[in-house]
Nucleic acid binder design. Structure first.
Length: 113
DNA sequence: AAATTGACGGTTA
DNA sequence: GTAACCGCCAATT
């Protein structure tokens, strides 16, 4: 049963995990949701990143979606990542993408490749 | 209280 | 490779 207490705990875990992403590495929203024990909350992780980016200082710019895309409407994210050596490209539609195979933080040591 | 929204993800076309 | 669709679920309207 998902009590409010559980949910606060989940949020706390999310912050903890994001704060531990190494410089020059990234995680996906889904990765963080799974690590925090709520595999179905990837969407809410994104919501959290948006709401805390102004209040807390977490490296939320190191979080991207499952395809390696950066957050829309946040040009700054590309610069912040580039400053750590993380390269990304912009396509015709303005979507910014990085290569997860290069930069994803391998917290799941049992993950293939 | 009901419907819509979204920094998501996986499947399907 | 892309786009559309669906399941997800707290937050917002």
């Amino acid at each position: 049963m998902q009590t409010d207490i559980d949910f606060q705990q989940f949020k706390k875990s999310v912050y903890e995990i994001v704060s531990q992403i190494p410089k020059g590495r990234v995680l996906t929203y889904g990765d963080i949701a799974r690590l925090a024990g709520r595999p179905n909350h990837a969407r809410f992780v994104g919501h959290l990143m948006g709401t805390v980016s102004h209040s807390r200082h977490l490296p939320c710019y190191r979080v991207v979606n499952a395809k390696g895309r950066l957050a829309p409407q946040w040009p700054k994210q590309k610069e912040l990542l580039a400053a750590e050596g993380v390269k990304s490209t912009v396509d015709k539609q303005g979507r910014i993408t990085l290569d997860l195979r290069c930069y994803r933080w391998q917290v799941f040591s049992n993950h293939p490749f």
